[in-house]
């Protein structure tokens, strides 16, 4: 094993009542790599992400070894994004960002620059329920701008974003990967604007 930090996923499996979605998934990811989970609907992409996040019971193990080969628990080091955006519709954009900052920690950047990047500067005092789907989604992804989490778990992060938002998200991914972070991403689409190699993982082959 190399001296660079490495993330290990061991023995992940999931079954429905009648069939096996996937089993025996064993993956080691070096720091700075992106795992792209692909597969048809119902192949267990979201399930796998939820399992890694610890939101679904599983038999597998997730841990990472830092450069001294010490095993570290990743629990406090992950950011999880899914279509349940976890933003509060009854709060304004600005309040939502404060809420996310208190939840995800990290040193908080200047509020107006965050709003600028998200393209929500003019809507800072609008309620989140008045935003479009894509805008709500970029708001939910905002913690990636300032957070210090090492592992990003993103479930279909691109799906409602416009091309501008897609670009800044890709830039964030590039920056995170350059800093030797990990990204595990489930998506139907091809990932654009990415400068780093992608490691694909295909689910749903078992059923064929």
């Amino acid at each position: 094993m190399s001296a660079t930090p490495c993330l290990h996923l061991n023995h992940f499996e999931a079954h429905t009542e009648t069939q096996t979605l996937f089993n025996n998934i064993n993956i080691s990811l070096a720091g700075g790599s992106l795992l792209h989970i692909q597969g048809p609907n119902g192949s267990g992409k979201s399930t796998l992400l939820r399992m890694i996040a610890g939101l679904k019971p599983h038999q597998g193990t997730v841990f990472w070894q830092d450069s001294t080969q010490k095993t570290v628990n990743i629990e406090s080091e992950l950011f999880y994004f899914s279509h349940q955006l976890a933003i509060k519709l009854g709060l304004t954009v600005q309040e939502n960002i404060r809420h996310l900052q208190s939840l995800h920690g990290g040193h908080s950047e200047n509020l107006s620059s965050i709003l600028e990047i998200l393209g929500l500067h003019s809507k800072r005092n609008t309620l989140a329920e008045a935003l479009s789907q894509g805008q709500q989604q970029s708001l939910a992804l905002a913690p990636l701008l300032w957070g210090t989490q090492k592992l990003w778990l993103l479930d279909e992060p691109f799906v409602a974003l416009d091309s501008k938002a897609k670009r800044w998200l890709s830039q964030l991914l590039n920056r995170h990967l350059a800093q030797k972070g990990w990204v595990i991403l489930a998506s139907h689409e091809k990932i654009e604007y990415l400068e780093h190699p992608i490691e694909p993982l295909f689910l749903g082959a078992l059923d064929a």
Binding site: G54, E75, Y80, L85, I87
Partner: peptide, 15 residues
């Protein structure tokens, strides 16, 4: 639970 924020609180045990 429905809007997913409960899951986020549960992920950050300290919150």
């Amino acid at each position: 639970l429905k809007d997913g924020s409960l899951a986020q609180y549960c992920l950050r045990t300290s919150s």
